[in-house]
Protein backbone atom coordinates (compact mmCIF):
# COMPACT_ATOMS: atom_id res chain seq x y z
CA UNK A 1 0.00 0.00 0.00
CA UNK A 2 1.35 3.39 -0.93
CA UNK A 3 1.13 6.00 1.77
CA UNK A 4 3.33 8.95 2.28
CA UNK A 5 4.54 10.04 5.65
CA UNK A 6 2.41 13.15 5.92
CA UNK A 7 -0.78 11.20 5.36
CA UNK A 8 0.23 8.69 7.99
CA UNK A 9 0.81 11.45 10.51
CA UNK A 10 -2.49 13.19 9.82
CA UNK A 11 -4.08 9.79 10.25
CA UNK A 12 -2.39 9.25 13.60
CA UNK A 13 -3.31 12.72 14.81
CA UNK A 14 -6.93 12.32 13.80
CA UNK A 15 -7.19 8.91 15.37
CA UNK A 16 -5.63 10.24 18.57
CA UNK A 17 -8.14 13.08 18.65
CA UNK A 18 -11.07 10.75 18.14
CA UNK A 19 -9.81 8.48 20.89
CA UNK A 20 -9.40 11.45 23.22
CA UNK A 21 -13.00 12.54 22.62
CA UNK A 22 -14.13 8.99 23.31
CA UNK A 23 -12.21 8.71 26.55
CA UNK A 24 -12.72 12.17 28.08
CA UNK A 25 -16.25 11.44 29.39
CA UNK A 26 -14.93 8.42 31.26
CA UNK A 27 -12.09 10.45 32.73
CA UNK A 28 -14.45 13.22 33.75
CA UNK A 29 -16.70 10.68 35.45
CA UNK A 30 -13.70 9.24 37.27
CA UNK A 31 -12.23 12.48 38.62
CA UNK A 32 -15.66 13.74 39.63
CA UNK A 33 -16.22 10.54 41.57
CA UNK A 34 -13.15 11.35 43.67
CA UNK A 35 -14.42 14.69 44.95
CA UNK A 36 -15.84 15.01 48.48
CA UNK A 37 -19.44 13.83 48.75
CA UNK A 38 -22.13 16.44 48.32
CA UNK A 39 -19.89 18.96 46.55
CA UNK A 40 -20.47 20.31 43.10
CA UNK A 41 -17.07 20.04 41.40
CA UNK A 42 -16.41 21.83 38.15
CA UNK A 43 -14.96 20.35 34.98
CA UNK A 44 -11.91 18.17 34.94
CA UNK A 45 -10.31 19.17 38.20
CA UNK A 46 -8.27 16.68 40.22
CA UNK A 47 -9.44 16.90 43.84
CA UNK A 48 -7.00 18.03 46.54
CA UNK A 49 -7.91 15.07 48.64
CA UNK A 50 -9.15 12.17 46.49
CA UNK A 51 -12.03 10.38 48.21
CA UNK A 52 -11.42 6.77 47.24
CA UNK A 53 -13.98 5.84 49.87
CA UNK A 54 -16.73 7.14 47.57
CA UNK A 55 -16.55 3.92 45.61
CA UNK A 56 -17.08 1.83 48.71
CA UNK A 57 -19.94 4.08 49.76
CA UNK A 58 -21.56 3.87 46.35
CA UNK A 59 -21.14 0.10 46.39
CA UNK A 60 -23.03 -0.04 49.66
CA UNK A 61 -25.60 2.63 48.78
CA UNK A 62 -26.53 0.91 45.55
CA UNK A 63 -26.29 -2.55 47.14
CA UNK A 64 -24.14 -3.42 44.18
CA UNK A 65 -23.82 -7.09 45.13
CA UNK A 66 -27.56 -7.52 44.84
CA UNK A 67 -27.62 -5.70 41.50
CA UNK A 68 -24.88 -7.88 40.07
CA UNK A 69 -26.76 -10.97 41.14
CA UNK A 70 -30.01 -9.68 39.65
CA UNK A 71 -28.47 -8.79 36.31
CA UNK A 72 -26.71 -12.12 36.19
CA UNK A 73 -29.95 -13.98 36.86
CA UNK A 74 -31.67 -12.07 34.09
CA UNK A 75 -28.83 -12.79 31.68
CA UNK A 76 -28.99 -16.47 32.64
CA UNK A 77 -32.71 -16.44 31.99
CA UNK A 78 -32.50 -14.72 28.63
CA UNK A 79 -29.32 -15.71 26.82
CA UNK A 80 -29.33 -19.53 26.86
CA UNK A 81 -33.03 -19.71 25.98
CA UNK A 82 -32.68 -17.15 23.19
CA UNK A 83 -29.64 -19.02 21.84
CA UNK A 84 -31.39 -22.38 21.78
CA UNK A 85 -34.67 -21.09 20.33
CA UNK A 86 -32.89 -18.91 17.78
CA UNK A 87 -30.63 -21.75 16.68
CA UNK A 88 -33.49 -24.21 16.29
CA UNK A 89 -35.57 -21.78 14.27
CA UNK A 90 -32.56 -20.73 12.23
CA UNK A 91 -31.97 -24.41 11.47
CA UNK A 92 -35.58 -24.91 10.43
CA UNK A 93 -35.65 -21.87 8.17
CA UNK A 94 -32.09 -21.99 6.88
CA UNK A 95 -31.32 -25.66 6.53
CA UNK A 96 -34.49 -27.75 6.68
CA UNK A 97 -36.31 -25.11 4.68
CA UNK A 98 -39.64 -26.16 6.07
CA UNK A 99 -42.71 -25.38 3.96
CA UNK A 100 -43.46 -21.67 4.18
CA UNK A 101 -40.00 -20.92 5.53
CA UNK A 102 -39.72 -17.73 3.49
CA UNK A 103 -42.82 -16.21 5.02
CA UNK A 104 -41.88 -17.32 8.49
CA UNK A 105 -38.45 -15.85 8.04
CA UNK A 106 -39.78 -12.60 6.65
CA UNK A 107 -42.07 -12.12 9.65
CA UNK A 108 -39.00 -12.38 11.86
CA UNK A 109 -36.99 -10.16 9.53
CA UNK A 110 -39.50 -7.33 9.78
CA UNK A 111 -39.25 -7.58 13.56
CA UNK A 112 -35.62 -6.48 13.35
CA UNK A 113 -36.64 -2.88 12.84
CA UNK A 114 -39.27 -2.80 15.57
CA UNK A 115 -38.60 -0.11 18.19
CA UNK A 116 -39.32 -1.51 21.66
CA UNK A 117 -41.42 1.56 22.43
CA UNK A 118 -43.84 0.32 19.79
CA UNK A 119 -45.10 -2.49 21.98
CA UNK A 120 -44.26 -1.36 25.50
CA UNK A 121 -47.76 -0.18 26.39
CA UNK A 122 -49.69 -3.42 25.72
CA UNK A 123 -46.73 -5.38 27.03
CA UNK A 124 -47.22 -3.71 30.40
CA UNK A 125 -50.84 -4.84 30.60
CA UNK A 126 -50.00 -8.29 29.28
CA UNK A 127 -47.26 -8.81 31.85
CA UNK A 128 -49.54 -7.46 34.58
CA UNK A 129 -52.31 -9.89 33.62
CA UNK A 130 -49.81 -12.73 33.69
CA UNK A 131 -49.04 -11.69 37.26
CA UNK A 132 -45.38 -11.16 36.49
CA UNK A 133 -45.10 -7.44 37.18
CA UNK A 134 -42.16 -6.63 39.45
CA UNK A 135 -40.49 -9.98 38.99
CA UNK A 136 -37.43 -10.73 36.89
CA UNK A 137 -39.65 -12.80 34.60
CA UNK A 138 -41.22 -9.51 33.49
CA UNK A 139 -37.89 -8.68 31.85
CA UNK A 140 -36.75 -12.17 30.90
CA UNK A 141 -39.73 -13.46 28.93
CA UNK A 142 -40.38 -10.34 26.80
CA UNK A 143 -36.66 -9.96 26.11
CA UNK A 144 -36.45 -13.51 24.78
CA UNK A 145 -39.33 -12.66 22.45
CA UNK A 146 -37.79 -9.36 21.42
CA UNK A 147 -34.42 -10.98 20.71
CA UNK A 148 -35.97 -13.68 18.51
CA UNK A 149 -35.85 -11.71 15.24
CA UNK A 150 -32.14 -11.03 15.53
CA UNK A 151 -31.26 -14.49 16.83
CA UNK A 152 -33.24 -16.27 14.12
CA UNK A 153 -31.90 -14.08 11.32
CA UNK A 154 -28.37 -14.47 12.62
CA UNK A 155 -28.48 -18.24 12.97
CA UNK A 156 -30.31 -18.72 9.70
CA UNK A 157 -27.55 -16.79 7.95
CA UNK A 158 -25.17 -19.37 9.36
CA UNK A 159 -27.24 -22.41 8.43
CA UNK A 160 -27.85 -21.44 4.79
CA UNK A 161 -24.10 -21.64 4.24
CA UNK A 162 -23.99 -25.25 5.48
CA UNK A 163 -23.79 -27.67 2.54
CA UNK A 164 -26.69 -30.09 2.18
CA UNK A 165 -24.29 -32.96 1.50
CA UNK A 166 -23.36 -32.90 5.15
CA UNK A 167 -26.92 -33.72 6.16
CA UNK A 168 -27.31 -36.26 3.40
CA UNK A 169 -24.29 -38.10 4.74
CA UNK A 170 -25.64 -38.07 8.26
CA UNK A 171 -29.02 -39.27 7.13
CA UNK A 172 -27.49 -42.16 5.27
CA UNK A 173 -25.90 -43.09 8.58
CA UNK A 174 -29.42 -43.25 9.96
CA UNK A 175 -29.55 -40.03 11.97
CA UNK A 176 -32.94 -38.48 12.68
CA UNK A 177 -33.53 -34.79 12.28
CA UNK A 178 -32.90 -34.08 15.95
CA UNK A 179 -29.61 -35.98 15.96
CA UNK A 180 -28.65 -34.28 12.76
CA UNK A 181 -29.27 -30.93 14.44
CA UNK A 182 -27.71 -31.69 17.78
CA UNK A 183 -24.76 -33.89 16.81
CA UNK A 184 -23.76 -32.41 13.48
CA UNK A 185 -24.95 -28.86 13.09
CA UNK A 186 -24.76 -27.36 16.57
CA UNK A 187 -21.06 -28.17 17.01
CA UNK A 188 -20.38 -26.62 13.61
CA UNK A 189 -22.35 -23.52 14.56
CA UNK A 190 -20.24 -22.74 17.63
CA UNK A 191 -18.49 -19.64 16.24
CA UNK A 192 -21.79 -18.07 15.16
CA UNK A 193 -23.36 -19.10 18.46
CA UNK A 194 -20.68 -17.60 20.64
CA UNK A 195 -20.79 -14.27 18.82
CA UNK A 196 -24.55 -14.21 19.20
CA UNK A 197 -24.15 -15.05 22.87
CA UNK A 198 -21.85 -12.09 23.41
CA UNK A 199 -24.26 -9.71 21.73
CA UNK A 200 -27.26 -11.00 23.64
CA UNK A 201 -25.38 -10.75 26.91
CA UNK A 202 -24.52 -7.12 26.21
CA UNK A 203 -28.01 -6.14 25.10
CA UNK A 204 -29.63 -7.81 28.09
CA UNK A 205 -27.24 -6.35 30.61
CA UNK A 206 -27.66 -2.84 29.18
CA UNK A 207 -31.39 -2.98 28.58
CA UNK A 208 -33.32 -0.07 30.06
CA UNK A 209 -36.88 0.42 28.85
CA UNK A 210 -38.47 -2.85 30.00
CA UNK A 211 -36.65 -2.56 33.31
CA UNK A 212 -38.03 0.85 34.21
CA UNK A 213 -41.54 0.14 32.99
CA UNK A 214 -42.12 -3.39 34.21
CA UNK A 215 -40.05 -3.66 37.37
CA UNK A 216 -40.18 -1.09 40.15
CA UNK A 217 -37.64 -2.64 42.48
CA UNK A 218 -34.11 -1.75 41.29
CA UNK A 219 -32.81 -4.92 42.93
CA UNK A 220 -34.77 -6.95 40.37
CA UNK A 221 -33.69 -4.96 37.32
CA UNK A 222 -30.89 -5.08 34.81
CA UNK A 223 -27.75 -3.05 35.46
CA UNK A 224 -28.87 -0.21 33.20
CA UNK A 225 -32.28 -0.08 34.84
CA UNK A 226 -30.66 -0.06 38.25
CA UNK A 227 -28.43 2.79 37.13
CA UNK A 228 -31.53 4.77 36.21
CA UNK A 229 -32.92 4.17 39.69
CA UNK A 230 -29.57 5.01 41.21
CA UNK A 231 -29.67 8.34 39.45
CA UNK A 232 -33.17 8.89 40.82
CA UNK A 233 -32.09 8.15 44.35
CA UNK A 234 -28.60 9.64 44.51
CA UNK A 235 -28.82 12.33 41.83
CA UNK A 236 -28.65 14.73 44.77
CA UNK A 237 -25.00 13.82 45.32
CA UNK A 238 -22.93 14.21 42.16
CA UNK A 239 -19.64 12.56 43.21
CA UNK A 240 -21.50 9.60 44.67
CA UNK A 241 -23.61 9.30 41.50
CA UNK A 242 -20.47 9.30 39.37
CA UNK A 243 -18.83 6.69 41.58
CA UNK A 244 -21.92 4.51 41.34
CA UNK A 245 -22.15 4.94 37.59
CA UNK A 246 -18.52 3.87 37.21
CA UNK A 247 -19.03 0.81 39.40
CA UNK A 248 -22.03 -0.20 37.33
CA UNK A 249 -19.88 0.08 34.20
CA UNK A 250 -17.09 -2.08 35.56
CA UNK A 251 -18.58 -5.53 34.83
CA UNK A 252 -19.29 -4.88 31.14
CA UNK A 253 -15.99 -3.09 30.67
CA UNK A 254 -14.15 -5.98 32.28
CA UNK A 255 -15.91 -8.58 30.14
CA UNK A 256 -15.27 -6.42 27.10
CA UNK A 257 -11.56 -6.05 27.76
CA UNK A 258 -11.15 -9.77 28.36
CA UNK A 259 -13.03 -10.87 25.26
CA UNK A 260 -12.38 -7.78 23.20
CA UNK A 261 -11.40 -9.51 19.98
CA UNK A 262 -14.57 -11.61 19.91
CA UNK A 263 -16.59 -8.60 21.02
CA UNK A 264 -15.43 -6.31 18.27
CA UNK A 265 -15.89 -8.99 15.66
CA UNK A 266 -19.34 -9.87 16.98
CA UNK A 267 -20.48 -6.27 17.14
CA UNK A 268 -19.26 -5.51 13.64
CA UNK A 269 -20.94 -8.58 12.18
CA UNK A 270 -23.96 -7.92 14.36
CA UNK A 271 -24.60 -4.52 12.92
CA UNK A 272 -24.08 -5.76 9.39
CA UNK A 273 -26.70 -8.42 9.83
CA UNK A 274 -28.93 -6.28 12.04
Amino acid sequence: MITNRREAWTGRLLLGLLMAVTVVPFVSLFVTALHPKGTYPSGLSWPDDPQWGNFADAFRAASMGELLLSSSLIVLGVVPAALVFGTMAGFAFGHLRVPGHRIGFLVFLLGLTLPFEGIITPLYYQVRDMGLLNSRWAIILPLIGLFMPFSVVWMRAHFVTMPDDLSEAARIDGAGTWQLFWRVHVPLAMPALSSLGILLFLWTWNHFLLAIVLVDDPAKRTMAGALGAFQGQWGTDIPLLCAGALLILVPTLAVFLIFQRRFVAALLQGSIKG
Binding site: T22, V23, L249, T252, Q260, V264
Partner: peptide, 18 residues
Amino acid sequence: RTVLFLPQVIPLVAAGIM
Protein backbone atom coordinates in the same frame (compact mmCIF):
# COMPACT_ATOMS: atom_id res chain seq x y z
CA ARG B 1 -10.25 -0.46 17.86
CA THR B 2 -10.71 -1.16 21.55
CA VAL B 3 -11.09 2.44 22.62
CA LEU B 4 -13.56 3.46 19.94
CA PHE B 5 -15.77 0.56 20.90
CA LEU B 6 -16.16 1.58 24.52
CA PRO B 7 -19.29 3.69 23.91
CA GLN B 8 -20.95 0.64 22.31
CA VAL B 9 -20.33 -1.50 25.33
CA ILE B 10 -21.70 0.73 28.09
CA PRO B 11 -25.42 1.27 28.68
CA LEU B 12 -26.82 4.35 26.97
CA VAL B 13 -28.00 5.42 30.40
CA ALA B 14 -24.39 5.73 31.48
CA ALA B 15 -23.58 7.76 28.39
CA GLY B 16 -26.46 10.05 29.30
CA ILE B 17 -25.20 10.53 32.85
CA MET B 18 -21.63 11.22 31.74
